[in-house]
Design a protein around this nucleic acid. Structure first.
Lengths: 210, 210
DNA sequence: CCGATACGCAACGGTGTCGTTTCGAAAGCT
DNA sequence: AGCTTTCGAAACGACACCGTTGCGTATCGG
């Protein structure tokens, strides 16, 4: 958490081992509800700028006070909310690079079709420039794990000789993930069956004549 | 223009040849200023939702009346503004597919580095879901020409035999443009020299071992 | 010159959100 | 019990925009 210290965190707890703040403890449930409401609203297409504390409070069934007590501003709240996002990546079977890449890209395509992920992606791309701290957080919890997953597979392919040793791994990964990103955004929405497979095969084999 | 008809457009002009509305004509300069101000604000990172008519009027040095007289709502204004965007694509020399693709991707990378294009891109990706009409307009004036440029080069390569005849052109184009998009968004910002060249070469030759 | 329209500007009442404050009730500790 | 802190709810004054209207001026055609 970012602004936990704001109220009592360090003061009451850091020095002596058993420093509870005395008084009614903060409701863990309220905190969950607030974060969940925040993510919900974002997932419904709300940009960070339009997110209103009032709407979050109302949606979470919580008083505004309860929010302001924990986060001093919207950005901190959103940052903490993003940080709770889990990244359930599909497991990779590890048999062949081709198969693993298809698995990962297909998962990416699937996620891009869901409203929640889609809107989060939008926020990530659009509000990123305006809220650099948010961007950092989002990249860390959402983009980075996926990038790493693809990167690991590619790197493994290089190590095992399945892929050429002289390739630029970052560019490879950009070609793969970027292709899927592009296609799901602006490609023709039809003909997306077996898209992951087509992308992977074509990036693997190249498009130039031999 | 979308809502020109709102006031006098069709009524005064369509029927008899010489039907001017009588009275002071609308200032072309004001119109330009309004649209320019709108694009400016968007380019400064303003999302469509946060765009305020007041801000636009103020920035354009224009009364709100002058805006409301022409556009009945914000979306129409933004749509018309986007429609005025020119797409100065780099000329392509047509010598080799590789060279042409590098030219186009390098231009894309360059554009992604400019704040104006960057923010417009953000709006395109983020507000697209919320304002489908805007999305359509933007795709038409900004995305489509670029997509077509790359597509034409790829298609030409297929025709001349420079590229394999069995490739999926759309996937190829997604791999190329998508890779650049991905890299400029989330790739490590260093080491972007010769990026276009690296992407093109690697997509052309593929990454799999032979 | 006259009538008509557009111009920039300032003001209107209305709405939504801000961040803060107050309130009575609830929930923990000693 | 008594003390402390948090809870949800409601209200506060402040501000930013909304979309509209009126005002005095500018610019056209007849």
């Amino acid at each position: 958490m970012t602004t936990q210290e704001m109220t009592h965190g360090t003061a009451g707890q850091a020095v002596a081992g058993a420093g509870r703040p005395a008084g009614r403890p903060r409701s863990e449930k309220a905190e969950k509800a607030i974060i969940e409401a925040t993510l919900d609203l974002i997932a419904e297409g709300m940009g960070v700028a339009e997110l209103s504390i009032e709407a979050i409070a109302s949606r979470a069934g919580v008083g505004k006070t309860t929010i302001y007590r924990r986060w001093s501003n919207k950005e901190d709240l959103v940052a903490d909310s993003l940080a709770t996002l889990k990244a359930p990546l599909p497991p990779v079977r590890g048999v062949s690079v081709r198969e693993d890449l298809i698995t990962l890209l297909a998962a990416m395509q699937n996620e891009a079709g869901q409203d929640r992920t889609r809107c989060l992606m939008n926020v990530a791309m659009s509000d990123a420039d305006r809220y650099p701290r948010l961007m950092g957080r989002f990249v860390k919890v959402a983009v980075e794990p996926r990038r790493k997953a693809v990167r690991d597979v590619v790197q493994r392919g290089v190590d095992t000789g399945e892929l050429r040793p002289d390739i630029d791994v970052d560019v490879a990964l950009a070609s793969l993930s970027g292709a899927m990103l592009w296609y799901t955004k602006w490609g023709n929405a039809e003909l997306t069956d077996g898209l992951a497979e087509r992308i992977v095969d074509q990036v693997l084999s190249g498009i130039a004549s031999r």
